[in-house]
Every structure is written in structure tokens, then in C-alpha cells.
């Protein structure tokens, strides 16, 4: 069973890109585009890790992270945050909330893959 990555992102082209990169490396990529229902998706899919966009329709990535960390089932789930906003305080806040990794868009494809491998090992 390949390791699964849940990608919570609302930009279809970015979903396409990350999906292509990770699936070619053997990971199973599930995407979800809505912030409000992201937690349900996590519960439902029980992924090995989460890639979370910061700016999401309905509910922000930071809020989702906070909820994940307060629930026992997901408090140790590796979470990599992606953001297009280059602001430092987003990163600080994310780290404070217990993010596992943090990346700024645009990113190098190789970097994303390496991060995922670091966090959950090879697929």
C-alpha cells in the first residue's frame, strides 16, 4: 500500500502539478479544495501526511492546522504548509501551531518531493 498524501488546495493547476510530482514518485495523492470540509476529508482518508494551503475558500489553513493539532488522532500527523503569501508572520504562526514543514509558492518540484520523503519516507 503506497503512502498517501492529502492535498488541501483550491488552485486546480497547482493540484495538477503536485499530484503529478508525487504520484510519479509513487505516492497516492488525494486532493480536497474546500477549507470547511477539510477535516472531514482527513478523517475519511486517513492520509500519511497533509499538504495544506494557507489561503483556502471557506476556512484558512491555520485554522485547520489548529484543529488537527488539538484532535488526538491527528496531533502527530505530518503537515506541510504551502503559502503564496510571502509573509513571515504566517510562517511564525504556523510553526507556533505545530506545523511540520513550511514551503512558499512557487516551489521547486524536487523540494516538495524531498520534503514529503523526509516526512513520511519513500512511498
Amino acid at each position: 500500500m503506497p503512502k498517501s498524501v492529502l492535498l488541501i488546495e483550491d488552485e486546480p493547476n497547482i493540484i495538477e502539478a503536485i499530484g503529478f510530482i508525487l504520484s510519479r514518485a509513487g505516492y497516492q495523492v488525494i486532493s480536497h479544495g474546500d477549507g470547511t470540509t477539510a477535516l472531514d476529508a482527513v478523517t475519511r482518508e486517513t492520509p500519511d501526511m497533509l499538504i495544506l494551503d494557507l489561503m483556502l475558500p471557506g476556512r484558512g489553513g491555520l485554522d485547520i492546522l489548529r484543529d488537527l493539532r488539538s484532535a488526538s488522532a491527528t496531533k502527530d500527523l505530518p503537515v506541510m504548509m504551502l503559502t503564496a503569501r510571502g509573509q513571515k508572520h504566517d510562517r511564525d504562526q504556523a510553526e507556533h501551531l505545530g506545523v511540520t514543514a513550511f514551503m512558499t509558492k512557487p516551489f521547486a518540484n524536487q523540494e516538495v518531493l524531498q520534503q514529503v520523503q523526509t516526512l513520511i519516507g519513500d512511498a
Binding site: E11, A17, I21, A84, G86, T104
Partner: peptide, 23 residues
């Protein structure tokens, strides 16, 4: 931050797919 977001989002796609194409 909006500008940043609005500019980075398309650039993210452009860069990601450029790399894919280059590969």
C-alpha cells in the same frame, strides 16, 4: 499580501509545469 498571493499562484503553476516539461 493579496498581490503576492495573486502573483505567486499563477507563477507556482508556471514554474511547476515548466520543471515537469523540462524533466
Amino acid at each position: 499580501s493579496q498581490i503576492s498571493h495573486e502573483l505567486r499562484t499563477p507563477m507556482t503553476s508556471i514554474r511547476a509545469f515548466s520543471e515537469i516539461l523540462l524533466a
